[in-house]
């Protein structure tokens, strides 16, 4: 019984939040890894692309809410999501046309693209703040919980409750669908294969008649989709704030690099590794320990390895350890 309580407490405070956060990071990291594979640079504007997509989704959500349209127990934002994706697609394609394409024609070096993406990052960041302001926005509506802690306790008779928020459930389901679709696209469709071919060997792709501009266009469309979905899921789960999204860049880069830049599976694995280590190391284990350990050994302190403010430090420490031992990341990406 005690063990069961410990397990439930662990699942409630570590397992569920980490799975949700890990899925969000994974979808974000997939976008970064795709740009890295096909366009061959790390996109510093990715966090702000996520912010932009989320912002559009929020605006449409407000519009729907104003018009009395709702999605029953699910958040209205899910209805608004396709609009957010479409507008973000438009923005990234516009950016590619007006900004990045020139450098492709010049055969610019990847690091030049990185600097260009810094400029795009500034502009998108400013644009989002300009439109929606720098403040915190909550836009989740509908049912808050799939199971609340109280219901769980009543159902099971345990002392510990297990709460699963709707946003967490949606995150996991969406992540599974998105990842399955993406892998199907990359591995089974002609266009997806041509993207992989272009990433593997650009010259040979050209000699096979693959049109680089089309490959790049599809990549941006997918990246816009992934970024918007990741951003909206994160926003539903926590809240939306432009600066927070900009800062998500670090754990997202860390996920992509830990997993192996350029490897989609790696991006997913990396997302969960980073999320689980962040949550476990900054979790106060007192509760779980009290259940598991005999009474005489019950801890006085919180048994927290590091304060929550150090979550960046954790993702980063994991990253350094992985890079020291496996410079190409866990799933052997293309770096190094």
């Amino acid at each position: 019984m005690e063990l069961l309580n410990a397990l439930v407490a662990f699942t409630n405070f570590v397992g569920v939040p980490a799975i949700a956060y890990g899925s969000q990071l994974a979808i974000g990291a997939l976008g970064v890894t795709l740009v890295y594979s096909v366009l061959r640079f790390s996109n510093f504007a990715h966090g702000d692309t996520m912010a932009f997509g989320t912002m559009v989704t929020i605006l449409v959500t407000w519009l729907f809410q104003g018009a009395g349209i709702s999605f029953g127990p699910l958040p209205t934002a899910l209805l608004a999501l396709p609009f957010g994706i479409a507008v973000t697609m438009g923005l990234v394609l516009f950016t590619d046309r007006t900004v990045y394409r020139f450098y492709r024609e010049q055969k610019a070096k990847p690091v030049v693209f990185v600097m260009v993406s810094l400029g795009v990052m500034f502009m998108m960041n400013g644009l989002v703040r300009f439109i929606i302001g720098p403040g915190d926005q909550r836009f989740a509506d509908g049912e808050r919980f799939i199971i609340s802690a109280r219901d769980f306790k009543k159902m099971t008779g345990l002392d510990e409750g297990l709460a699963i928020k709707t946003s967490q459930g949606i995150t996991v389901v969406t992540a599974i669908i998105v990842v399955a679709l993406l892998f199907w696209f990359l591995n089974k469709t002609r266009t997806g294969k041509s993207m992989r071919a272009y990433s593997d060997n650009e010259d040979l792709a050209l000699l096979s008649g693959i049109n680089p501009e089309r490959v790049v266009m599809y990549t941006w469309l997918i990246v816009a989709t992934l970024a918007t979905i990741a951003g909206v899921l994160y926003g539903l789960d926590k809240s939306f704030k432009p600066f927070t999204y900009f800062q998500l860049l670090l754990p997202i880069f860390a996920s992509a690099i830990v997993g192996g830049l350029g490897s989609p599976i790696g991006a997913i694995a990396g997302g969960f590794i980073i999320a689980f280590s962040e949550v476990t190391i900054t979790y106060a284990w007192k509760k779980v320990a009290t259940y598991v350990l005999p009474e005489t050994m019950a801890p006085d302190g919180l048994v927290q390895l590091l304060s929550t403010d150090y979550k960046f430090a954790v993702s980063f420490a994991i990253l350094i350890i992985v890079l020291l031992f496996k410079p190409t990341g866990i799933f052997k990406g293309k770096s190094v």
């Binding site: 061959r40 640079f41 055969k107 070096k109 690091v111 650009e202 880069f253 830049l261 350029g262």
Partner: peptide, 14 residues
């Protein structure tokens, strides 16, 4: 620059 975390030279066109 040869920073592998931001630039990818693998398979780049020549």
């Amino acid at each position: 620059n040869k920073d592998a975390t931001i630039t990818n030279t693998h398979g780049a066109g020549t």
